[in-house]
Amino acid sequence: MSNRLINVLVPLISIILGLLVGAVVMLVSGYDPVAGYIALWNGIFGDSYAIGETIRQISPYILAGLAVAFAFRTGLFNIGVEGQLIVGWFAAAYVGMAFELPKIIHLPLALLAAAAAGALWGLIPGLLKATLKVHEVIVTIMMNYIALHLVNALIKVVAKGGFKTDKIQDTASLRSDFLSELTDFSTLHYGIFVALFMVFIMWFILERMKLGYELKSVGFNENAAQYAGMSVKKNIVMAMVISGAFAGLGGAMEALGTFGNMSTRAGFTGIGFDGIAVALLGANTPLGVVFGASLFGSLKYGANNMPNAANIPIEIVSIVIALIIFFVACGYIIRVGLQRIGKNKEAK
Protein backbone atom coordinates (compact mmCIF):
# COMPACT_ATOMS: atom_id res chain seq x y z
CA MET A 1 0.00 0.00 0.00
CA SER A 2 1.46 3.35 -0.92
CA ASN A 3 2.18 5.95 1.74
CA ARG A 4 -0.13 8.38 0.05
CA LEU A 5 -3.08 6.02 0.19
CA ILE A 6 -2.40 5.35 3.86
CA ASN A 7 -2.31 9.09 4.57
CA VAL A 8 -5.81 9.37 3.13
CA LEU A 9 -7.08 6.19 4.72
CA VAL A 10 -6.03 7.01 8.31
CA PRO A 11 -8.39 9.98 8.73
CA LEU A 12 -11.15 8.16 6.86
CA ILE A 13 -10.88 5.16 9.15
CA SER A 14 -10.82 7.47 12.17
CA ILE A 15 -14.07 9.10 11.04
CA ILE A 16 -15.72 5.73 10.45
CA LEU A 17 -14.53 4.41 13.82
CA GLY A 18 -15.77 7.58 15.52
CA LEU A 19 -19.21 7.24 13.95
CA LEU A 20 -19.33 3.53 14.77
CA VAL A 21 -18.42 3.99 18.43
CA GLY A 22 -20.94 6.85 18.53
CA ALA A 23 -23.56 4.40 17.26
CA VAL A 24 -22.58 1.93 19.97
CA VAL A 25 -22.93 4.67 22.59
CA MET A 26 -26.42 5.43 21.29
CA LEU A 27 -27.37 1.74 21.32
CA VAL A 28 -26.11 1.23 24.86
CA SER A 29 -27.96 4.32 26.05
CA GLY A 30 -31.19 3.01 24.57
CA TYR A 31 -31.41 5.30 21.54
CA ASP A 32 -31.83 4.28 17.93
CA PRO A 33 -28.55 5.02 16.11
CA VAL A 34 -30.11 4.69 12.65
CA ALA A 35 -32.78 7.25 13.46
CA GLY A 36 -30.09 9.37 15.07
CA TYR A 37 -27.82 9.43 12.04
CA ILE A 38 -30.76 10.01 9.70
CA ALA A 39 -31.74 13.00 11.84
CA LEU A 40 -28.14 14.18 11.67
CA TRP A 41 -28.09 13.81 7.89
CA ASN A 42 -31.35 15.71 7.52
CA GLY A 43 -30.04 18.36 9.87
CA ILE A 44 -27.13 18.92 7.51
CA PHE A 45 -28.65 18.41 4.04
CA GLY A 46 -32.40 18.24 4.72
CA ASP A 47 -33.39 21.44 2.89
CA SER A 48 -31.75 24.53 1.47
CA TYR A 49 -32.10 26.32 4.80
CA ALA A 50 -30.15 23.58 6.58
CA ILE A 51 -27.49 23.62 3.87
CA GLY A 52 -27.12 27.38 4.23
CA GLU A 53 -26.75 27.15 7.99
CA THR A 54 -24.27 24.30 7.64
CA ILE A 55 -22.06 26.31 5.29
CA ARG A 56 -22.32 29.25 7.68
CA GLN A 57 -21.10 27.01 10.50
CA ILE A 58 -18.21 25.75 8.40
CA SER A 59 -16.57 29.19 7.93
CA PRO A 60 -15.27 29.71 11.50
CA TYR A 61 -14.17 26.07 11.57
CA ILE A 62 -12.06 26.59 8.45
CA LEU A 63 -10.31 29.55 10.05
CA ALA A 64 -9.81 27.81 13.39
CA GLY A 65 -8.44 24.80 11.54
CA LEU A 66 -6.09 26.96 9.48
CA ALA A 67 -4.82 28.57 12.68
CA VAL A 68 -3.98 25.25 14.32
CA ALA A 69 -2.57 23.79 11.10
CA PHE A 70 -0.37 26.79 10.37
CA ALA A 71 1.26 26.62 13.80
CA PHE A 72 1.64 22.86 13.49
CA ARG A 73 3.61 23.28 10.28
CA THR A 74 6.21 25.26 12.22
CA GLY A 75 6.24 22.64 14.94
CA LEU A 76 4.09 24.62 17.36
CA PHE A 77 0.93 23.45 19.06
CA ASN A 78 -1.45 26.39 19.32
CA ILE A 79 -4.17 25.38 21.80
CA GLY A 80 -4.84 29.08 22.18
CA VAL A 81 -6.98 29.34 19.04
CA GLU A 82 -10.02 29.49 21.29
CA GLY A 83 -8.75 32.58 23.11
CA GLN A 84 -7.50 34.21 19.91
CA LEU A 85 -10.92 33.66 18.38
CA ILE A 86 -12.65 35.23 21.37
CA VAL A 87 -10.52 38.40 21.30
CA GLY A 88 -10.99 38.57 17.52
CA TRP A 89 -14.74 38.28 17.97
CA PHE A 90 -14.75 41.14 20.45
CA ALA A 91 -12.45 43.35 18.36
CA ALA A 92 -14.61 42.91 15.27
CA ALA A 93 -17.82 43.48 17.20
CA TYR A 94 -16.39 46.63 18.77
CA VAL A 95 -15.03 48.13 15.57
CA GLY A 96 -18.21 47.16 13.76
CA MET A 97 -20.32 48.90 16.35
CA ALA A 98 -18.31 51.96 17.37
CA PHE A 99 -17.34 53.52 14.03
CA GLU A 100 -19.37 55.03 11.24
CA LEU A 101 -17.57 54.60 7.94
CA PRO A 102 -18.40 53.67 4.38
CA LYS A 103 -18.66 49.92 3.87
CA ILE A 104 -15.60 49.68 1.67
CA ILE A 105 -13.47 50.85 4.61
CA HIS A 106 -15.52 49.69 7.56
CA LEU A 107 -15.80 45.99 6.78
CA PRO A 108 -12.09 45.50 5.98
CA LEU A 109 -11.21 47.53 9.06
CA ALA A 110 -13.36 45.32 11.29
CA LEU A 111 -11.83 42.19 9.78
CA LEU A 112 -8.37 43.64 10.21
CA ALA A 113 -9.09 44.49 13.84
CA ALA A 114 -10.12 40.91 14.51
CA ALA A 115 -7.00 39.57 12.81
CA ALA A 116 -4.81 42.01 14.73
CA ALA A 117 -6.38 41.10 18.07
CA GLY A 118 -5.89 37.40 17.38
CA ALA A 119 -2.35 38.05 16.20
CA LEU A 120 -1.58 39.93 19.41
CA TRP A 121 -2.94 37.01 21.43
CA GLY A 122 -0.63 34.72 19.45
CA LEU A 123 2.31 37.09 19.70
CA ILE A 124 2.65 36.69 23.48
CA PRO A 125 3.12 32.91 23.55
CA GLY A 126 5.25 33.21 20.40
CA LEU A 127 7.60 35.70 22.01
CA LEU A 128 7.80 33.69 25.23
CA LYS A 129 8.58 30.55 23.28
CA ALA A 130 11.17 32.22 21.08
CA THR A 131 13.02 34.17 23.77
CA LEU A 132 12.55 32.22 26.99
CA LYS A 133 11.69 28.76 25.65
CA VAL A 134 8.43 28.64 27.62
CA HIS A 135 6.26 25.83 26.34
CA GLU A 136 3.57 27.29 24.08
CA VAL A 137 0.93 24.74 25.08
CA ILE A 138 0.73 25.90 28.69
CA VAL A 139 0.94 29.59 27.82
CA THR A 140 -1.79 29.37 25.19
CA ILE A 141 -4.09 27.48 27.58
CA MET A 142 -3.61 30.22 30.15
CA MET A 143 -4.12 32.89 27.47
CA ASN A 144 -7.48 31.28 26.65
CA TYR A 145 -8.77 31.92 30.14
CA ILE A 146 -7.32 35.40 30.24
CA ALA A 147 -9.10 36.14 26.94
CA LEU A 148 -12.40 34.80 28.25
CA HIS A 149 -12.40 36.83 31.47
CA LEU A 150 -10.94 39.95 29.89
CA VAL A 151 -13.43 40.01 27.03
CA ASN A 152 -16.31 39.44 29.44
CA ALA A 153 -15.16 42.45 31.43
CA LEU A 154 -14.69 44.56 28.29
CA ILE A 155 -18.17 43.70 27.06
CA LYS A 156 -19.60 44.95 30.35
CA VAL A 157 -17.63 48.19 29.93
CA VAL A 158 -18.69 48.68 26.32
CA ALA A 159 -22.31 47.76 27.06
CA LYS A 160 -22.29 50.02 30.15
CA GLY A 161 -23.01 47.20 32.56
CA GLY A 162 -25.05 45.11 30.15
CA PHE A 163 -24.26 41.60 28.97
CA LYS A 164 -23.96 42.13 25.25
CA THR A 165 -22.58 44.72 22.87
CA ASP A 166 -24.86 46.69 20.59
CA LYS A 167 -25.41 45.37 17.09
CA ILE A 168 -22.76 46.25 14.53
CA GLN A 169 -23.46 48.88 11.85
CA ASP A 170 -24.70 47.59 8.52
CA THR A 171 -21.52 48.91 6.93
CA ALA A 172 -19.44 46.34 8.85
CA SER A 173 -21.76 43.41 8.29
CA LEU A 174 -20.91 40.30 6.30
CA ARG A 175 -24.61 39.54 5.99
CA SER A 176 -25.83 38.97 2.48
CA ASP A 177 -29.43 39.17 1.35
CA PHE A 178 -28.55 37.29 -1.80
CA LEU A 179 -27.01 34.29 -0.01
CA SER A 180 -29.74 34.39 2.59
CA GLU A 181 -32.55 34.29 0.02
CA LEU A 182 -30.74 31.62 -1.95
CA THR A 183 -30.89 29.35 1.09
CA ASP A 184 -34.44 29.96 2.26
CA PHE A 185 -33.52 32.85 4.59
CA SER A 186 -30.75 31.15 6.53
CA THR A 187 -28.04 33.24 8.18
CA LEU A 188 -25.49 32.30 5.53
CA HIS A 189 -23.13 35.23 4.97
CA TYR A 190 -20.08 36.24 2.93
CA GLY A 191 -17.78 34.89 5.64
CA ILE A 192 -17.34 31.63 3.78
CA PHE A 193 -15.56 33.54 0.99
CA VAL A 194 -13.29 35.22 3.51
CA ALA A 195 -12.49 31.80 4.94
CA LEU A 196 -11.80 30.26 1.53
CA PHE A 197 -9.62 33.23 0.60
CA MET A 198 -7.59 32.61 3.73
CA VAL A 199 -7.19 28.98 2.69
CA PHE A 200 -5.59 30.32 -0.45
CA ILE A 201 -3.44 32.73 1.59
CA MET A 202 -2.16 29.92 3.76
CA TRP A 203 -1.33 27.82 0.71
CA PHE A 204 0.40 30.82 -0.87
CA ILE A 205 2.48 31.58 2.23
CA LEU A 206 3.53 27.99 2.72
CA GLU A 207 4.13 26.95 -0.87
CA ARG A 208 5.04 30.13 -2.73
CA MET A 209 6.82 32.42 -0.28
CA LYS A 210 10.27 32.43 1.28
CA LEU A 211 8.60 32.97 4.64
CA GLY A 212 6.64 29.75 4.26
CA TYR A 213 9.72 27.80 3.29
CA GLU A 214 11.50 29.04 6.40
CA LEU A 215 8.50 28.30 8.62
CA LYS A 216 8.29 24.74 7.36
CA SER A 217 12.05 24.29 7.70
CA VAL A 218 11.90 25.31 11.35
CA GLY A 219 9.04 22.86 11.78
CA PHE A 220 10.99 20.01 10.21
CA ASN A 221 14.27 20.59 11.98
CA GLU A 222 15.08 23.61 14.07
CA ASN A 223 18.81 22.98 14.13
CA ALA A 224 19.11 22.47 10.41
CA ALA A 225 17.14 25.67 9.80
CA GLN A 226 19.42 27.54 12.18
CA TYR A 227 22.49 26.14 10.45
CA ALA A 228 21.15 27.23 7.09
CA GLY A 229 21.03 30.77 8.42
CA MET A 230 17.35 31.13 9.20
CA SER A 231 16.26 32.87 12.37
CA VAL A 232 14.40 30.25 14.36
CA LYS A 233 13.17 32.82 16.85
CA LYS A 234 11.74 35.12 14.21
CA ASN A 235 9.97 32.24 12.52
CA ILE A 236 8.43 30.96 15.74
CA VAL A 237 7.02 34.42 16.47
CA MET A 238 5.79 34.82 12.88
CA ALA A 239 4.08 31.43 12.93
CA MET A 240 2.19 32.24 16.12
CA VAL A 241 1.23 35.71 14.90
CA ILE A 242 -0.14 34.46 11.59
CA SER A 243 -1.86 31.57 13.31
CA GLY A 244 -3.45 33.99 15.76
CA ALA A 245 -4.60 36.22 12.91
CA PHE A 246 -6.42 33.30 11.27
CA ALA A 247 -8.08 32.51 14.59
CA GLY A 248 -9.04 36.15 15.11
CA LEU A 249 -10.73 36.17 11.71
CA GLY A 250 -12.66 33.11 12.85
CA GLY A 251 -14.04 35.31 15.61
CA ALA A 252 -14.91 37.98 13.05
CA MET A 253 -17.16 35.43 11.29
CA GLU A 254 -19.27 35.25 14.44
CA ALA A 255 -19.15 38.98 15.12
CA LEU A 256 -19.78 40.37 11.63
CA GLY A 257 -21.73 37.51 10.11
CA THR A 258 -23.60 35.17 12.37
CA PHE A 259 -24.42 37.12 15.53
CA GLY A 260 -23.72 40.77 14.76
CA ASN A 261 -22.64 41.34 18.37
CA MET A 262 -21.01 39.59 21.30
CA SER A 263 -22.48 38.49 24.63
CA THR A 264 -20.61 37.63 27.83
CA ARG A 265 -19.81 33.94 27.98
CA ALA A 266 -19.75 31.47 30.88
CA GLY A 267 -17.45 29.18 28.93
CA PHE A 268 -15.60 28.70 25.68
CA THR A 269 -17.12 28.56 22.21
CA GLY A 270 -15.46 25.21 21.51
CA ILE A 271 -14.66 26.25 17.95
CA GLY A 272 -10.99 26.72 18.78
CA PHE A 273 -10.66 23.28 20.32
CA ASP A 274 -12.52 21.68 17.44
CA GLY A 275 -10.00 23.49 15.23
CA ILE A 276 -7.40 21.06 16.55
CA ALA A 277 -9.51 18.21 15.25
CA VAL A 278 -10.04 19.96 11.93
CA ALA A 279 -6.32 20.49 11.44
CA LEU A 280 -5.41 16.95 12.44
CA LEU A 281 -8.00 15.47 10.15
CA GLY A 282 -6.82 17.67 7.31
CA ALA A 283 -3.19 16.61 7.85
CA ASN A 284 -2.35 20.32 8.38
CA THR A 285 -2.70 21.18 4.70
CA PRO A 286 -4.90 24.08 3.54
CA LEU A 287 -7.13 21.89 1.41
CA GLY A 288 -7.32 19.22 4.08
CA VAL A 289 -8.52 21.85 6.52
CA VAL A 290 -11.44 22.64 4.21
CA PHE A 291 -12.49 19.00 4.30
CA GLY A 292 -12.01 18.71 8.05
CA ALA A 293 -13.95 21.91 8.66
CA SER A 294 -16.75 20.79 6.37
CA LEU A 295 -17.07 17.56 8.32
CA PHE A 296 -17.02 19.09 11.79
CA GLY A 297 -19.07 22.15 10.84
CA SER A 298 -21.71 19.86 9.35
CA LEU A 299 -21.71 17.54 12.36
CA LYS A 300 -22.01 20.46 14.78
CA TYR A 301 -24.86 22.12 12.92
CA GLY A 302 -26.64 18.91 11.97
CA ALA A 303 -26.63 17.83 15.60
CA ASN A 304 -29.20 20.55 16.35
CA ASN A 305 -31.77 18.42 14.57
CA MET A 306 -31.13 15.32 16.69
CA PRO A 307 -33.06 16.19 19.88
CA ASN A 308 -36.24 17.02 17.93
CA ALA A 309 -36.16 14.42 15.20
CA ALA A 310 -34.76 11.46 17.11
CA ASN A 311 -34.96 12.54 20.75
CA ILE A 312 -31.21 12.10 21.21
CA PRO A 313 -29.18 14.63 23.25
CA ILE A 314 -27.13 16.92 21.06
CA GLU A 315 -23.95 16.02 22.95
CA ILE A 316 -23.73 12.72 21.07
CA VAL A 317 -22.05 14.65 18.27
CA SER A 318 -19.49 16.09 20.67
CA ILE A 319 -18.77 12.52 21.73
CA VAL A 320 -18.31 11.49 18.09
CA ILE A 321 -15.99 14.44 17.42
CA ALA A 322 -13.91 13.70 20.51
CA LEU A 323 -13.68 10.07 19.44
CA ILE A 324 -12.53 11.06 15.95
CA ILE A 325 -9.77 13.21 17.47
CA PHE A 326 -8.83 10.29 19.69
CA PHE A 327 -8.61 7.89 16.77
CA VAL A 328 -6.65 10.37 14.66
CA ALA A 329 -4.23 10.70 17.59
CA CYS A 330 -3.91 6.92 17.55
CA GLY A 331 -3.03 7.08 13.84
CA TYR A 332 0.15 5.11 14.46
CA ILE A 333 -1.69 1.92 15.29
CA ILE A 334 -4.08 2.35 12.34
CA ARG A 335 -1.05 2.83 10.10
CA VAL A 336 0.57 -0.33 11.44
CA GLY A 337 -2.66 -2.23 10.91
CA LEU A 338 -2.97 -0.99 7.31
CA GLN A 339 0.63 -1.82 6.49
CA ARG A 340 0.15 -5.31 7.85
CA ILE A 341 -2.95 -5.81 5.72
CA GLY A 342 -1.03 -4.49 2.72
CA LYS A 343 1.83 -6.89 3.31
CA ASN A 344 -0.46 -9.88 3.69
CA LYS A 345 -2.02 -9.07 0.33
CA GLU A 346 1.37 -8.79 -1.34
CA ALA A 347 2.43 -12.13 0.13
CA LYS A 348 -0.54 -13.80 -1.47
Binding site: L280, A322, L323, G331
Partner: peptide, 24 residues
Protein backbone atom coordinates in the same frame (compact mmCIF):
# COMPACT_ATOMS: atom_id res chain seq x y z
CA UNK B 1 0.86 1.64 23.68
CA UNK B 2 -0.36 3.40 20.55
CA UNK B 3 2.34 6.11 20.64
CA UNK B 4 -0.25 8.84 20.11
CA UNK B 5 0.63 12.49 20.49
CA UNK B 6 -0.02 12.85 24.21
CA UNK B 7 -1.27 16.42 24.00
CA UNK B 8 -3.77 15.56 21.29
CA UNK B 9 -4.95 12.51 23.17
CA UNK B 10 -5.36 14.69 26.25
CA UNK B 11 -7.43 17.18 24.28
CA UNK B 12 -9.63 14.30 23.13
CA UNK B 13 -10.04 13.17 26.75
CA UNK B 14 -11.13 16.68 27.73
CA UNK B 15 -13.71 16.90 24.96
CA UNK B 16 -14.91 13.37 25.57
CA UNK B 17 -15.23 13.85 29.34
CA UNK B 18 -17.55 16.83 29.10
CA UNK B 19 -19.48 15.33 26.17
CA UNK B 20 -20.15 12.01 27.89
CA UNK B 21 -21.07 13.72 31.16
CA UNK B 22 -23.54 16.14 29.54
CA UNK B 23 -24.97 13.43 27.29
CA UNK B 24 -25.63 11.25 30.33
Amino acid sequence: SFRADQVVSGVAINLLGIAIALFS
